[in-house]
Nucleic acid binder design. Sequence first.
DNA 1: TGTATCGGATACATGAACGTATTGGATAGG
DNA 2: CCTATCCAATACGTTCATGTATCCGATACA
Lengths: 197, 197
Amino acid sequence: MRVTKRRAETKARLLDAAFQVFAPKGFGPARIDDVCAAAGYTRGAFYSNYTTLDELFFDLYDERAALIAAQVTESLTAPPLDAPVEEVIERTVATLLLDRDWLLVKTDFLLHAARNPTLARRLAGHRDQLRQAVRDRLASVRGQLALPSSIPDVDAAAKAVVAAYDGVTVQLLLDSDVTAARAWLTQLLTALLTRSS
Amino acid sequence: MRVTKRRAETKARLLDAAFQVFAPKGFGPARIDDVCAAAGYTRGAFYSNYTTLDELFFDLYDERAALIAAQVTESLTAPPLDAPVEEVIERTVATLLLDRDWLLVKTDFLLHAARNPTLARRLAGHRDQLRQAVRDRLASVRGQLALPSSIPDVDAAAKAVVAAYDGVTVQLLLDSDVTAARAWLTQLLTALLTRSS
DNA sequence: TGTATCGGATACATGAACGTATTGGATAGG
DNA sequence: CCTATCCAATACGTTCATGTATCCGATACA
């Protein structure tokens, strides 16, 4: 069955609306009606495109996760390819998009994934993708990385970066201070990726 | 109004049941009936003690958070008071209780707090309490800590410990591998709290 | 032991969200 | 321009969770 232009437009508007509803309200109390109203439709539009709200939620996650992955990859390439670690950290964190709304939705998704193996693998896939991008970037750092002795290789380092990111995320969700989050992330990454002089 | 023995017992059983329901199911889809059934009551018992499910949820968080704080404090005192950092890390992480069910409930609470300033302060208070305990423990480490240069003082170090814990939490929620989480947490903490030789 | 209060059970009414079946307007194709 | 298909709107009926009002057994207290 062919996807008509109209249908695609409707789906897109539903996805956007879903984000605007899920971010402030959370998935739990969100109703199908809420999303439809936010998109300027009635429930008929929803049931013509999805069968359950979960389905829409998971679609939304996939779409936004792809966007974010692209954005992070872009930030990673901001500093010159052969720059020293300190500069890579500094400039990457500076251009990194830290969207609290997205973090809220992503954490909601994390909780679902933590209780559902299928979703867990989907999320793990997304995380692996990001981790891999970080790994590749670290591998290209000038003059062989000098990692702390407890971080054996580039893979562990990439994992550490993700963990630091997750840690900062939690703090950001609580205090909404993006500037502080950036500074804090820089500190953590520096400690994790460089050998202190 | 006096609190009778019977009432206290009922509340306690409701709290226990709430944990057993919220952990696997999450707060969103949990119904008042679910909790009451799990506790062996009907809804009458609930409405006689609470007015809303949020109220019970928040009470549950406070209760369990206090338990966890005590448990963490205990773990922190496992290693000898004047032991070197490496040993403090090793033994603390080894005895640390990593209860996935609690992490699930706590993350649920985190999401609520992220959308509700009042709850956010409650959670921040709990985090401060833990951070403070870590700080005090670090301060007692033998021979002045040699922190990485990007971590200026013991306060920053304590914050870093919390961030690492949060980062590992996310991973643990996804893969349920407590052993790996422990090893990973040890690595991260070592990198964050010691000056690599 | 008798009595008054307390607390959980039960029954009922209400409202909200859901899913479906049907309609009618829009749109694409000839 | 006509027609067939598509898709969102509408209007049901149903289910489910909720909150309340009442009842009755249990418990505390004299």
